[in-house]
Simulated assay, not measured.
Amino acid sequence: MSSSVSALGTLLEEGPGLQAVLLDMDGTLVDTEGCWWQAEREVFAELGHSLREEWRQVVVGGPMARSAGFLIEATKADIGLEQVSRLLNARFVECVARMGQSVPLMPGAGRLLAELTTHGLPAALVSASHRHVVDHMLGSLGHANFACTVAGDELARTKPHPDPYLTAAEQLGVDPRRCAVLEDTATGVASAEAAGCRVVAVPSVAPIEPAPGRTIVRSLEEVDLAFLRSLRAVAH
């Protein structure tokens, strides 16, 4: 998709405008969901347990406490939540490091971030991953592309609660109802919708069901700034 200055100008004149774009990280902007699953399989294999493939859809997109807690309960592994969380985070970073200098971006992610930056529309990175993981990914995504970032271990409640997206909107000084959110999991979508944001779902590992006011696309290649602005016009 492509946008034009004239089209953007028309959309800006049609009611309340889009104030910011809030973006999930893993599976939405960076192709790392496979690394998380690999880390989970490796860590639990070393603990003597094999993970079932169907569990992947359960743990994808959630906060570390929920995902790791589910796997501990499902496997009956003799390990604490804090310890296994440290192991999973460390193994994930190792997996990403093996990719080389640049973590692969999801199709259309680089173009979309560049377009938001070019047009001066604030963007926030809102992730359930821990801060050190988010900071590592910013090396590939570009620090300058984001006005603020929110990590999962910085909040008392993370996705699917609305807190991450409400926090990002507050840090940007914008109305969450005038923010567009891009998410790849049902957990993230639930968080953004609970915050009152307009959601564009880009499913990665697991499908996301249609719902009123929710837009589902196949990839970020279908999303540009004009598209996001038009969603706000329709929503109001």
Rank of each mutant, 00 (worst) to 15 (best):
residue 2 S to T: 11
residue 2 S to K: 10
residue 5 V to Q: 15
residue 5 V to K: 12
residue 5 V to E: 15
residue 8 L to F: 00
residue 9 G to P: 11
residue 10 T to D: 15
residue 12 L to C: 15
residue 13 E to I: 09
residue 16 P to N: 10
residue 16 P to K: 10
residue 19 Q to F: 02
residue 20 A to C: 06
residue 21 V to N: 08
residue 22 L to V: 03
residue 24 D to T: 13
residue 24 D to R: 09
residue 24 D to K: 08
residue 25 M to L: 10
residue 28 T to I: 00
residue 29 L to W: 05
residue 31 D to V: 10
residue 32 T to G: 11
residue 33 E to W: 10
residue 35 C to K: 04
residue 37 W to F: 14
residue 39 A to P: 01
residue 39 A to E: 03
residue 40 E to I: 00
residue 41 R to A: 12
residue 42 E to A: 05
residue 45 A to R: 15
residue 45 A to D: 14
residue 47 L to K: 03
residue 47 L to A: 07
residue 48 G to Q: 12
residue 55 W to A: 05
residue 56 R to M: 07
residue 56 R to G: 04
residue 63 P to L: 06
residue 64 M to W: 11
residue 67 S to K: 03
residue 67 S to W: 03
residue 68 A to F: 00
residue 68 A to W: 00
residue 69 G to M: 03
residue 69 G to W: 02
residue 69 G to I: 01
residue 69 G to L: 03
residue 69 G to C: 04
residue 71 L to K: 00
residue 73 E to V: 03
residue 73 E to F: 06
residue 76 K to D: 14
residue 80 G to Y: 01
residue 83 Q to C: 04
residue 84 V to L: 13
residue 85 S to C: 05
residue 85 S to L: 01
residue 85 S to G: 02
residue 86 R to T: 08
residue 87 L to K: 00
residue 89 N to E: 13
residue 93 V to Q: 09
residue 95 C to Y: 03
residue 95 C to N: 06
residue 96 V to S: 14
residue 96 V to H: 10
residue 97 A to N: 10
residue 98 R to F: 09
residue 99 M to L: 15
residue 101 Q to N: 13
residue 102 S to A: 14
residue 104 P to H: 12
residue 105 L to K: 00
residue 106 M to F: 06
residue 106 M to L: 15
residue 108 G to C: 08
residue 109 A to W: 04
residue 110 G to I: 05
residue 111 R to L: 13
residue 112 L to A: 12
residue 116 L to F: 04
residue 117 T to S: 13
residue 118 T to Y: 15
residue 119 H to C: 13
residue 120 G to I: 06
residue 120 G to L: 05
residue 122 P to T: 00
residue 122 P to G: 02
residue 125 L to W: 11
residue 127 S to Y: 02
residue 130 H to M: 14
residue 131 R to D: 09
residue 133 V to C: 11
residue 137 M to T: 00
residue 137 M to R: 08
residue 139 G to C: 10
residue 140 S to F: 10
residue 142 G to Y: 11
residue 146 F to P: 06
residue 146 F to C: 07
residue 147 A to R: 15
residue 147 A to E: 11
residue 147 A to M: 09
residue 148 C to Y: 02
residue 151 A to P: 02
residue 153 D to I: 08
residue 153 D to P: 02
residue 159 K to A: 01
residue 159 K to D: 01
residue 160 P to E: 05
residue 170 E to P: 01
residue 174 V to Y: 00
residue 179 C to N: 08
residue 179 C to R: 10
residue 180 A to L: 13
residue 180 A to R: 12
residue 180 A to M: 14
residue 183 E to S: 07
residue 183 E to Y: 13
residue 186 A to D: 14
residue 186 A to L: 14
residue 187 T to C: 11
residue 189 V to C: 07
residue 189 V to D: 03
residue 190 A to V: 09
residue 192 A to R: 06
residue 194 A to R: 08
residue 195 A to G: 02
residue 196 G to I: 13
residue 196 G to V: 12
residue 197 C to V: 07
residue 197 C to P: 01
residue 197 C to R: 05
residue 198 R to T: 14
residue 198 R to E: 10
residue 200 V to N: 01
residue 201 A to G: 12
residue 203 P to W: 08
residue 203 P to R: 06
residue 203 P to A: 10
residue 204 S to L: 07
residue 204 S to G: 12
residue 209 E to G: 04
residue 212 P to G: 08
residue 214 R to K: 13
residue 214 R to Q: 13
residue 214 R to A: 15
residue 216 I to E: 01
residue 220 L to V: 10
residue 220 L to G: 09
residue 221 E to T: 09
residue 225 L to G: 10
residue 227 F to E: 02
residue 228 L to E: 07
